Amino acid sequence: MLNNLVCFLNTTWQWILHNIFSISALAVSLLTLHRNRTTLEVKFSPGIDRTMDLSTEIIDKNGNYIHAYRNVFLVSVEIINSSPNDIAYYDLYAFDPKTYNFLEFVNPKAFLFSHPGVGVIHYINKVTFNILNVPLEQYGVFKANSYTKFNLPIIVTDPDEIKNIDTLTVGFKAIKRALFRNTDKQSYYVTYNVKNLLQDSRFKKGYNNEIKIFITISEILNSEKLEDAFLYDELSKLDIILGELKNSEISDQALSDIVNMYKYLIENKTMLSVEVKSLLRDITKRSTLGFATENNQKRKDLMLEIKKDFSKISDRTITSTKF
């Protein structure tokens, strides 16, 4: 019995010695295959932010305002790819698990044709904002040995969804290399409780709008040359901002700033183009829309002042329509 065991061990040892290179190659291959497995460390933000209405904005490469959004949730996700391989991801999504309605992400891609270099920012108070790293596509690649952070602003536009959404699921899928298979799919997702967040009135009045109006009007008040082309550009920005606000969201200070701008134009600009006058007419309408039903006397006086000043501006001589 002992002789048989010794014989077996001796035979095994001889086999190992004769095949040592093959065994080593196999061990190295298995180790390499194990190390090359696609592994992602994914961390979603622990909570979801209900942002102030109109505090998530599209801006151009110079920081100028283009567009803002209401009813936005903000989520971030951090991804660490510690493997030596690039890992593809796809199907970046957000949806309501109760209705299976898919929601949209704020995406600057639609503005790239007319505004090269656009970006997305989020105001966290009246003057401070964060630049968001928003993916332009729902697919892409996590580079080998890399760290990636996405900010995902999610828009809810459907009126029924705004009233009834209780939970929100955000996630994506990735291609991974399994140990004994060529490829496999892995889903990463998280579900947040968002019940009643879109109904909370505290988020309805974006706190960055007053400062945006002030900055735009300040550009005009601080300009020594009130050329029509310059006025048209600045007044267009103001018209867009006011157009996205309800009348109640235009503060007393903003109305006062508009009054100051009108008086400045009356004192310093004797001739206006048709285009500039048209913009001023729109701005007047937007800022005095609630005049007839306004109960606050201070606001009513400011609106009346805007109307009177625009009447004076309207009587000015019109220049050529060409800038």
Score class of each variant (00 low, 15 high):
Glu57Thr: 07
Asn64Thr: 05
Leu31Met: 09
Ile59Tyr: 01
Phe113Ala: 15
Thr51Pro: 09
Thr39Tyr: 10
Thr39Asp: 11
His67Ile: 11
Asp60Val: 05
Arg37Ile: 08
Ser76Val: 09
Tyr69Leu: 06
Phe113Cys: 03
Leu30Gly: 02
Phe73Arg: 11
Pro46Arg: 09
Phe105Leu: 04
Tyr123Ile: 02
Asp91Leu: 03
Ala94Trp: 00
Val77Trp: 06
Gly119Glu: 05
Ile66Met: 07
Arg50Cys: 08
His34Gly: 07
Asn125Trp: 04
Leu112Pro: 05
Ile59Phe: 13
Thr56Gly: 08
Ala94Pro: 01
Val75Asp: 09
His115Val: 06
Phe44Ile: 00
Lys126Asp: 14
Tyr93Ser: 11
Thr51Lys: 11
Asn107Ala: 09
Glu41Thr: 15
His115Tyr: 13
Leu31Pro: 00
Thr32Gln: 04
Ile66Glu: 01
Lys43Ile: 07
Val72Gly: 09
Ala110Asn: 08
Asn64Pro: 02
Asn64Trp: 04
Asn62Gln: 12
Pro97Ser: 13
Thr128Gln: 07
Thr51Asp: 12
Val42Lys: 06
Ile59Glu: 05
Ser55Met: 08
Gly63Met: 00
Val72Tyr: 10
Ile66Arg: 15
His67Lys: 15
Val127Cys: 09
Ser45Thr: 09
Ala110Trp: 01
Ile121Ala: 00
Phe73Cys: 02
Ile59Arg: 06
Thr99Met: 04
Pro46Lys: 13
Ile79Thr: 06
Tyr90Gly: 00
Thr56Ala: 15
Tyr100Ala: 11
Asp60Ala: 03
Ser114Met: 11
Leu92Glu: 00
Gly63Val: 00
Lys61Leu: 04
Leu40Arg: 13
Ser114Asp: 08
Leu74Asn: 11
Glu57Ser: 10
Thr51Phe: 02
Arg35Phe: 02
Ile59Lys: 00
Lys61Gln: 04
Val77Asp: 06
Asn125Asp: 15
Asn101Cys: 10
Arg37His: 10
Ile79Glu: 14
Phe129Cys: 09
Val118Asp: 01
Leu103Ala: 03
Pro108Leu: 05
